[in-house]
Design a protein around this nucleic acid. Sequence first.
DNA 1: ATAATATACTACTAATTTAGTAGGAATAAT
DNA 2: ATTATTCCTACTAAATTAGTAGTATATTAT
Lengths: 144, 144
Amino acid sequence: MKLSTRTRYGMRAIIELAENDRKRPLQLKVIAQRQDISAKYLEQLMVVLKSAGFVRSIRGAKGGYLLAKAPNQIKLSDIFHCLEGTVSTVECIENEDYCKRAADCVARQVWTQVQEAIENVLQSITLQDVVDRAKGDKALDYQI
Amino acid sequence: MKLSTRTRYGMRAIIELAENDRKRPLQLKVIAQRQDISAKYLEQLMVVLKSAGFVRSIRGAKGGYLLAKAPNQIKLSDIFHCLEGTVSTVECIENEDYCKRAADCVARQVWTQVQEAIENVLQSITLQDVVDRAKGDKALDYQI
DNA sequence: ATAATATACTACTAATTTAGTAGGAATAAT
DNA sequence: ATTATTCCTACTAAATTAGTAGTATATTAT
């Protein structure tokens, strides 16, 4: 049950933006370099994040990307849904017609529980929380 | 974050076995038919479940498959791990060397939380629980 | 013994998805 | 004008997943 690089890269990229000053745009190139991601590939992921309204872009020289909302207004679940094409662990959760057994399928019940557990975690964390956590970690480093 | 059919099919198959009388073997063909799975494909999944010790088989005429342990001794997490090749949402959770940033990567922390949530759900459910649930559902049907 | 019924094993193939590349167009700053 | 950047579209490569095929082996029943 691996996450796609799509989701992994996209999440890391938007965390970079959340950690970045919201006034100065951060260039794709820089994010790609810092996160060791193919710039061309990341470009496509940014399109997705942009059209979903999480980031905005400034074109041309000195352009780049910015977080479009306050980091405490963006839940990880939102980003996750936007990146990971399929939200559900199994098709039949969203689409009951997918399988005729759906209505009384115990396996489906289990996968629903799993999915809800995932949702709960991701809904409970905002980008702000992630940024705070990162800062906390760094503060800890200095104490050593 | 879709589950592989491997996991979905395998889980449904072993639930069939758990629902079945533990004395009489259930044939692959029957499971495949009931669950609408390619018999030849399921065959390969049964090998996996067998070598992991969850099911045992009886060859030859009147043969088939049986649950190898009491259903209350098999947690869904065990089956899940055995079927779903990769247990972790991201490689770096198990293998810290996979990425040099791992040690202080906040994304990694998030995925770890997600993974733990999944584990918790699956560890809390045994095959017996699933069987009981299925029976409960059927009992409910009759009342209508 | 032989036929019938099952699982066991190995190898191949097809389909789908995922990841990544390429190249140029549009836009903005200097 | 030149440079730096995002934007857009299409293509390609790699990997994974799902499924098929055929043969070997074991067991039961007649």
